[in-house]
């Protein structure tokens, strides 16, 4: 008897999350970008519908580039001195469809920028570029809890993706995101149970699961990538099997991690391929949104995705 193909059909579907509101919805973005919506495992095109290919956002800071690797400094050049030109360069020169801004300036080590000033920066950024925005905190919990709500308000109605809510501190952020019509990044430390728990807590506050994106916290290639890889695979399998509380798309901050590594500093190609392979490997594990830094790495990953999604 001829062998029959093993075709897995899953009962669950990943929620579709939209980022960016166009003018017909009261925003000023040029596009609405959707992620998620698939009902099969990554790249298993024959088993279901992969409604939206993974998307890539370019990451910038709200202050002149600090702590960036030499190669990134070279590729962005003078634009790094002014975050607004930096964002513009990403869009105009490198074709960025999404901008992810980290509010680094509010960190005590980088100037302690006030919530008010941070919010002003977001207003300016929204005027400068019309790509949908992702806004994330500096990592200083105390300041983030004031700065991010201020930024959220400044971008009211633009349907940004805002983060990050963590287990110990999510309430203020959820309230802001609800009030201002955004979506939320829920961050968990490579832990499927915390990811699930956090999603439940957030949705209990009234923010629907279709407005949550999970940041599973990743390591770069050679720096613990496999931990996130397996957590994402496990969570995605659980979600497709019917666990709605894990059925949110994944966001992975690939650029930050990849360019921090020793390998990325050896030569430009080594750095670019490090970011590239970190990204494509995580796509195989289920990543829906990749936040990247080097335009060549972005173009290599995009090329690969075109090949995958070619009809």
């Amino acid at each position: 008897m001829d062998p029959q193909l093993v075709v897995d059909k899953w009962p669950g579907t990943i929620f579709t999350v939209a980022i960016g509101a166009k003018s017909n919805e009261g925003g000023s973005r040029n596009e609405e970008i959707k992620i998620g919506g698939q009902n099969c495992l990554p790249l298993m095109f024959k088993e279901g519908v992969i409604a939206h290919p993974p998307q890539i956002a370019f990451e910038i800071l709200d202050i002149p580039g600090v702590d960036l690797s030499e190669e990134l400094v070279k590729v962005y050049g003078a634009a790094l001195k002014d975050p607004l030109s930096w964002a513009q360069k990403c869009v105009q020169e490198f074709g960025a469809k999404l901008i992810s801004v980290k509010m680094q300036g509010s960190h005590p080590d980088f100037g302690n920028r006030s919530p008010l000033e941070s919010a002003k920066f977001i207003e300016l950024l929204l005027k400068k570029v019309n790509a949908p925005l992702i806004i994330t905190g500096s990592g200083d919990d105390a300041n983030d809890s004031l700065v991010i709500p201020a930024c959220s308000e400044a971008a009211k109605g633009e349907r940004c993706l805002i983060g990050s809510a963590v287990q110990d501190s999510y309430k203020t952020l959820v309230a802001s995101v609800l009030a201002d019509g955004h979506s939320l990044i829920a961050e968990s430390p490579i832990d499927i149970n915390i990811a699930k728990q956090l999603n439940i807590l957030i949705s209990d506050m009234g923010l629907g699961l279709e407005r949550i994106v999970i940041n599973p916290t990743i390591g770069a290639l050679g720096y613990g990538l496999e931990y996130a890889y397996s957590i994402m695979e496990r969570a995605r399998i659980a979600a497709l099997a019917g666990d709605k509380t894990l059925a949110c798309p994944f966001i992975c901050f690939v650029g930050q991690e990849a360019w921090k590594t020793k390998e990325a500093k050896v030569n430009p190609e080594q750095g670019i391929i490090w970011e590239t392979i970190t990204a494509t490997s995580l796509i195989q594990a289920g990543a829906d949104l990749l936040v990247m830094q080097h335009p060549r790495a972005v173009s290599k990953v995009s090329q690969f995705m075109e090949q995958l999604f070619k009809k």
Binding site: L221, G222, E226, Y229, V266, E269, Q270, I273, T276, I277
Partner: peptide, 20 residues
């Protein structure tokens, strides 16, 4: 045959085949 390419491939192999 670029060493940076080979290192990235071998590192991913090491990651994926490490014992969870």
């Amino acid at each position: 045959l670029d060493s940076w390419e080979i290192l990235s491939i071998l590192t991913l192999r090491q990651d994926i085949y490490s014992d969870p």
